[in-house]
Simulated assay, not measured.
Amino acid sequence: MGILNVTPDSFSDGGRYTDVDAAIEHGMDLYRAGADIVDIGGESTRPGAARVDAATEVSRVVPVISGLAAAGVPMSIDTTRAAVASAALAAGASVINDVSGGLADPAMAGVARDAGCPWILMHWRGHSRDMAQLAVYRDVVAEVCTELLARVENATAGGVDPGQIILDPGLGFAKTAEHNWALSRRLDVLVDLGFPVLFGASLKTYLGRLLAGPDGTPRPVDRRADATLATSVLAVAAGAWGVRVHDVAATVDALAVWRATGSPRLAKP
């Protein structure tokens, strides 16, 4: 899954693709590089980000989705709002990527049900401005699994077919670096819940902290690509259905090497 943020304030590429033509061209580049799906987002969900209204979000994503749909590019819409998801699906998107797992907008279940499209439910405890204080767990792996299964139960109660559902552990969303590493280490537990799993670590802050310099300064965003590649290969080896990344070409190459080895799924610890 290739990431295309059409926002002015996303942590890695904010402002680079606010122009519709530039965004469409980048989406085409991601697709040509091997992305199976391009994930379009019109509202930043980085820690501390301010919210935008639904109309602004729609105005950002729909022209880009329409342009890419005309070129045959498969797309997901990265949104927590049912109205935005509906507009995006009408414009040509075919997957809903909901970082709130349906919690932010109860109407999202009805949109997914009626569309019959895949719905990615990410683990989430609150919006960007609040999520840091919500990163409190006794057992992060067990609690994330329990809370995700509650979201699945809610979705299916709303008429969503379980076969539509994909899960995402939500790295960095109400998670500390230690929580992210624990979820990465035991991704097999989430995979064994029986739903496809999307893994998204691309360029995130916890990788920068891992690779901090001698003075403790985190590795900047533009120097986290190699670490991202490692997380993506390890996630697929652990059974992940997909990885959400900024650098599609390098990820495709790395996964081709992994597949060529014929390596099995990683053994459980």
Score class of each variant (00 low, 15 high):
Gly42Asp: 13
Ala227Gly: 15
Asp161Ala: 10
Ala174Lys: 09
Ala70Asn: 12
Trp119Arg: 02
Lys268Glu: 09
Ala115Ile: 08
Val61Pro: 01
Gly34His: 10
Asp247Arg: 01
Ser128Gly: 07
Arg60Lys: 05
Arg138Ile: 02
Ser44Thr: 14
Asp98Gln: 10
Asp168Cys: 08
Ser100Asp: 09
Ala87Val: 06
His246Leu: 09
Met28Thr: 12
Ala104Ser: 13
Thr79Asp: 14
Lys268Pro: 00
Trp124Lys: 04
Thr251Met: 06
Thr45Tyr: 07
Pro220Met: 06
His26Pro: 03
Arg138Cys: 07
Thr79Leu: 14
Ala88Val: 04
Val62Pro: 11
Leu198Val: 15
Arg265Glu: 06
Thr146Arg: 15
Val152Met: 11
Thr231Gln: 04
Ala33Ile: 00
Ala177Trp: 03
Asp130Gln: 15
Gly163Lys: 08
Cys145Phe: 00
Ala237Tyr: 02
Leu30Val: 10
Arg125Ala: 09
Val236Gly: 12
Leu193His: 04
Thr45Cys: 06
Ala254Leu: 13
Val52Ile: 14
Thr18Pro: 03
Asn5Lys: 10
Gly172Ser: 08
Asp13Asn: 07
Asp29Gln: 14
Arg209Lys: 10
Ala150Gly: 14
Ser128Pro: 12
Ala55Ser: 14
Gly158Lys: 03
Asn5Glu: 07
Phe195Arg: 07
Glu43Ala: 14
Asp247Trp: 02
Tyr17Met: 03
His179Phe: 04
Pro47Glu: 05
Ile166Ala: 03
Ser94Trp: 07
Asp253Arg: 13
Asp192Phe: 13
Ala50Phe: 08
Ala90Trp: 01
Ala132Tyr: 01
Leu203Lys: 14
Asp222Ile: 00
Ser12Lys: 03
Val236Tyr: 05
Ala155Trp: 09
Val95Asn: 04
